[in-house]
Nucleic acid binder design. Structure first.
Lengths: 154, 154
DNA sequence: TTACGTGCAGTTACATTATAACATAACACA
DNA sequence: TGTGTTATGTTATAATGTAACTGCACGTAA
């Protein structure tokens, strides 16, 4: 991602937070920037390391976890339970208020792609869930996959 | 679950393993039994505790993890990444070779329901995945939900 | 029967992921 | 300027998961 794109995405995030009436502090911004800059999802501790690399400045895991909680609430960051890693939302700019996301996680190389879930798919999923007597609260769907670059090697 | 049901399920598991040419050892059976008997999913360490309660006999976490790996390979047990817990497959008896499962996990009480995913749903999901250039390897789908018993309380 | 290979389980140590609890700093607003 | 609220600092520890090596049990073939 280009520096311009990054800074423009961060600007958008700032607006999202101020609209929501919550604070987009310097630390929160820096953590988000590290995640946006990373081509693959990071664990909280990897984020600690990357933060050090980017800013020559220490941040503790405890702070990272708290900031990640905040960023998740604002839907700027998603947690992938599949591998306990965190990834910035890929729709901060284009359509931050899209519906449910679907993550394809390559189990070989760790690449992740986030796409918006088609309405019909979400509909039939939700229906299936409520037929069974539940109501859905999942923020997203995680699918373990093999990406096309990795597939030939297996 | 009644003792008869449990023992008949274990018998089926035994047959599944012998058909697959793998050993269904005493430890593996006991671990599976603990999981089958549990009304809610268990973490590996909760399993260690329950094992002690059931059999007045210690098992180490390392062994539990190894055995869980084995049981997952034979599809007798599923791991829920959502909460890092393990649950016995609810289709050991009826239709062990069903398709992809869909888990509804109540975030309030921890109850889990496993249902087979409808063919069309699986189809449209798979299609969406391959459109994006991936092929799916996920053994199942996890959906965070609220069950109807918990919903009124929120 | 014995010897051998394979895979299962025991054991220790450690790595990774996550949270509790309390202290201090920064900010917002009367 | 004081006061309540939110964010961050700090330490400790809980919970989850894996590496690496050891010994044992079981099947198989000489």
């Amino acid at each position: 991602m280009s520096p311009e794109q990054l800074s423009s995405t961060v600007q958008t995030a700032k607006h999202i937070c101020s609209s929501a009436g919550v604070r987009f502090t310097e630390k929160r911004q820096k953590v988000l920037e590290v995640l946006i800059a990373s081509p693959i999802p990071l664990s909280a501790y990897e984020l600690v390391d990357q933060y050090q690399v980017h800013y020559k400045e220490e941040i503790r895991a405890m702070s990272v976890y708290r900031i990640l909680d905040f960023l998740q609430e604002e839907q700027l960051v998603h947690k992938l339970n599949f591998n306990n890693k965190f990834i910035s939302c890929s729709h901060i700019q284009c359509c931050h208020d899209h519906g449910m996301s679907q993550f394809m996680i390559c189990t070989e190389c760790g690449q992740v792609e986030e796409v918006a879930m088609p309405k019909e798919l979400l509909h039939s999923l939700t229906q299936r869930v409520s037929e069974s007597g539940y109501s859905m609260v999942s923020p997203h769907l995680e699918l373990a996959c093999i990406c096309h670059s990795c597939e030939p090697q297996i």
